[in-house]
Amino acid sequence: MGETASQQAPAARPGGVTIIAVVLVLEALGLLAAAGWYLYGLLTSTPTSLGGAIFTMVFLVVMALWLLVVSYHLARGYRWTRSAALVFQLFVIVIAVPTLSAGIIPVGLALLVPAAAVLLLLFTRPVLAYISRTGDNAKVL
Rank of each mutant, 00 (worst) to 15 (best):
F123N: 13
L31K: 15
A75F: 12
T124E: 09
G77M: 07
A53N: 11
A34V: 04
W37T: 15
L122H: 05
V62R: 12
S45T: 13
L128W: 04
L24M: 11
V61G: 05
Y130E: 02
Y72D: 10
A96Q: 04
L128Q: 09
S6W: 11
I19N: 09
F88I: 03
I104G: 04
P114N: 07
P126T: 07
A9G: 06
L119P: 00
A12N: 13
R76A: 14
V113E: 01
L109S: 07
G16T: 09
L31G: 10
L119C: 05
K139S: 11
L109W: 10
L111W: 04
V107Y: 10
F88T: 12
S45H: 09
A53F: 14
V25L: 14
A35W: 09
M1N: 08
T44K: 08
A64C: 04
L120I: 12
A53Y: 09
T48N: 14
Y38H: 14
V61P: 04
L141Y: 14
M57D: 03
L42E: 00
V87H: 01
A33I: 06
S83D: 07
M63K: 08
W66C: 01
A85K: 03
A35Y: 05
A138Q: 09
L67Y: 00
W37F: 14
A33T: 13
V70M: 02
P47A: 04
S132R: 09
G52Q: 08
V127Q: 00
L128A: 08
T99W: 01
L122P: 03
L100T: 07
A85F: 01
G16S: 08
R13V: 15
L50G: 04
Y38Q: 14
W37R: 12
P98D: 01
Y130Q: 01
P106L: 02
I93L: 15
S132V: 01
T56R: 12
A5L: 11
G30K: 01
L90K: 00
P126Y: 03
G41A: 07
A138M: 12
V22Q: 15
V113Y: 00
Q89I: 00
I131F: 04
L119G: 03
R13Y: 05
D136W: 13
V94Y: 10
G108L: 03
S6R: 10
V140G: 02
I104P: 12
P98L: 01
F123K: 03
I54F: 08
L121Q: 01
V25G: 10
L60C: 04
L67R: 03
V69Y: 13
I93H: 02
Y78M: 05
N137K: 07
V94P: 07
W66H: 14
G51N: 08
N137R: 13
G2D: 11
H73L: 13
V70I: 12
A85L: 07
V62F: 10
A12C: 06
